[in-house]
Simulated assay, not measured.
Amino acid sequence: MTRRNSVTFEFVDYIPEQLEDGVVYMAPEFGAVMHLYCDGCGERVSTPLHPGQWTLTFDGETISLSPSIGNWELPCKSHYFIRRNRVVWAGEWSDERAAQGVRDDRDAVVTQPESAPNALSAAWSRLRAWVHALTK
């Protein structure tokens, strides 16, 4: 497996069935972001945009996803951040830390206000219109 040190991104209407290695696909209308794990294992990773899950920052040239991306149920156990199109590799978590992370993630989703997805959808609509205007 070859680890990536950077990614590119594409704004799409729908996430394609076949993902290209090193490309982060963003479907703003659906709050969906997908890519292949950056360690080269070939597994798909979904980072749904929601205040209790992941947030995406687009500065007009680069993207960042927060918090970290990882899956300790897969053999690769990759763990990294995407910051300004760069892949920043993070350390492997113990089984106990991974279990706590799953609980923390679940609790974060439950405690978010119900209006958060509506606000996110509105923000994505504005961002999408802006990006489409730039590309015309």
Results as ranks from 00 to 15, higher is better:
residue 34 M to L: 14
residue 56 L to C: 07
residue 45 V to T: 13
residue 33 V to M: 13
residue 20 E to V: 13
residue 39 D to M: 01
residue 23 V to F: 06
residue 59 D to Y: 07
residue 68 S to Q: 07
residue 55 T to L: 10
residue 38 C to V: 07
residue 73 E to P: 00
residue 55 T to P: 02
residue 37 Y to Q: 01
residue 74 L to K: 13
residue 25 Y to A: 08
residue 76 C to T: 04
residue 30 F to G: 13
residue 76 C to D: 03
residue 58 F to W: 15
residue 40 G to K: 02
residue 51 P to T: 12
residue 20 E to Q: 15
residue 44 R to H: 08
residue 63 I to W: 03
residue 29 E to W: 08
residue 75 P to N: 08
residue 82 I to R: 05
residue 37 Y to P: 01
residue 76 C to M: 02
residue 30 F to E: 08
residue 23 V to L: 04
residue 41 C to V: 03
residue 61 E to S: 14
residue 67 P to D: 13
residue 81 F to C: 09
residue 42 G to R: 06
residue 61 E to R: 15
residue 55 T to W: 00
residue 71 N to I: 00
residue 54 W to M: 04
residue 24 V to Q: 10
residue 68 S to C: 12
residue 53 Q to H: 10
residue 35 H to K: 06
residue 73 E to R: 14
residue 33 V to D: 07
residue 78 S to K: 03
residue 59 D to E: 04
residue 77 K to L: 04
residue 36 L to M: 05
residue 51 P to V: 14
residue 26 M to Y: 14
residue 22 G to K: 06
residue 59 D to K: 08
residue 56 L to A: 08
residue 67 P to L: 11
residue 86 R to T: 07
residue 56 L to K: 08
residue 72 W to N: 15
residue 26 M to E: 02
residue 45 V to W: 14
residue 54 W to L: 04
residue 82 I to P: 09
residue 52 G to L: 07
residue 66 S to M: 06
residue 34 M to S: 14
residue 35 H to W: 03
residue 57 T to C: 03
residue 79 H to I: 09
residue 75 P to C: 01
residue 50 H to A: 12
residue 45 V to M: 11
residue 21 D to M: 01
residue 71 N to Y: 11
residue 54 W to D: 13
residue 67 P to C: 13
residue 74 L to C: 01
residue 34 M to V: 13
residue 21 D to Y: 02
residue 32 A to C: 09
residue 46 S to N: 11
residue 70 G to W: 01
residue 37 Y to F: 12
residue 31 G to E: 01
residue 44 R to L: 00
residue 37 Y to N: 10
residue 47 T to E: 10
residue 51 P to L: 11
residue 72 W to M: 13
residue 84 R to C: 02
residue 28 P to K: 02
residue 85 N to R: 02
residue 56 L to M: 14
residue 62 T to L: 02
residue 57 T to S: 09
residue 27 A to I: 06
residue 48 P to A: 09
residue 47 T to R: 07
residue 55 T to M: 11
residue 85 N to M: 05
residue 77 K to S: 09
residue 37 Y to W: 00
residue 30 F to V: 05
residue 76 C to Y: 04
residue 38 C to D: 11
residue 72 W to T: 12
residue 32 A to H: 10
residue 60 G to K: 05
residue 47 T to S: 15
residue 40 G to L: 01
residue 54 W to A: 10
residue 67 P to V: 12
residue 80 Y to T: 08
residue 44 R to F: 00
residue 55 T to C: 14
residue 33 V to F: 05
residue 60 G to S: 05
residue 62 T to W: 01
residue 71 N to P: 02
residue 75 P to K: 13
residue 75 P to Q: 08
residue 24 V to F: 09
residue 43 E to Q: 15
residue 33 V to H: 04
residue 67 P to E: 09
residue 70 G to K: 06
residue 49 L to Y: 00
residue 40 G to R: 06
residue 68 S to R: 04
residue 77 K to D: 03
residue 69 I to F: 01
residue 34 M to R: 14
residue 29 E to A: 15
residue 55 T to H: 10
residue 42 G to E: 03
residue 79 H to L: 07
residue 60 G to H: 05
residue 53 Q to R: 11
residue 49 L to G: 06
residue 22 G to R: 06
residue 41 C to E: 03
residue 67 P to T: 13
